[in-house]
Nucleic acid binder design. Structure first.
Lengths: 134, 134
DNA sequence: ACACTTTTTTAGAATCATTATAAACTAAAA
DNA sequence: TTTTAGTTTATAATGATTCTAAAAAAGTGT
């Protein structure tokens, strides 16, 4: 059952360790994608598995996964960094009162056409953050 | 010459102190708007005036100004918080290599139409971040 | 001016997310 | 198996930001 993650990790040049497989299980073994902070993830791991993984490892792994494109960082100003298991092109609402993120599919936002060009640079991503108030 | 800032501060319920007027001078007394971190601002203040202002005061003041709408926070994931003296509706490029922000006027980005609605919430702002790579 | 209240400034301490360190461990390769 | 390179871990270090409480300044009324 973990075979797909073993493959996935190997193909990325990451050794499939017990810890990384556990983290894969918590992150990717659900129908629904979700947003999380490192702290959220640590709690979730502890709850779902009865196996403690060091915080440093969680940080390392999340960053490794992000670098490989298995996770995305959400650009937002909060004290903690938010990540998203939804790696498709999409955007976010941020409910300021609840401090909660909500997905906005690409199609929920009209097509975005960036007219300005910067010499020698190309666009890597276009991210929209919509802040919500009551 | 500082009269306009004295007014401005008073109208916001902020006492026009020597420190706040200095900070106004550094932030707003230029034709061009700019992006800055608290650290940047502290250096700029020290350079332009020969008057040291405590870091705590700079933090307080910048946050007070942001709350009053004289500054905007830029949503981006970096270890330091970025602010903008340009408070018009606009967006940003973020050059990943140089770690530098570049303004994108509202008109440089096609009109954005958010189709999804959240019950009982209204949109406060729509911000676009365009990441650039080489 | 003077006394009094409220706000502000400040140095320094505290907090807290994140990153670095270096030793113990594990997986892969020879 | 032995060796090598990559990982995990507890703990320390870092660094941005916030808190604290005392001193200073600003505003108000007399």
């Amino acid at each position: 059952m973990n075979v797909k993650y073993i493959e996935k990790l190997r193909n990325s040049g990451l050794r499939p360790t017990k810890q990384r497989l556990q983290i894969c299980d918590v992150l990717f073994e659900t129908k629904k994608t979700f947003h999380f902070t490192i702290y959220d993830l640590a709690k979730k791991i502890q709850k779902q598995t009865n196996f403690d993984i060091s915080l440093a490892t969680i940080y390392n792994t999340v960053h490794a996964f992000e670098k490989k494109g298995y996770l995305k960082q959400i650009p937002i100003n909060t004290n903690q960094t938010y990540f998203d298991t939804n790696i498709t092109d999409h955007h976010h609402f941020f409910d300021l009162k609840e401090e909660k993120l909500i997905d906005l599919d690409d199609c929920d936002v009209g097509p975005i056409n960036i007219k300005k060009k910067i010499n020698g640079k190309k666009i890597k991503s276009v991210e929209v953050l919509v802040k919500l108030e009551d």
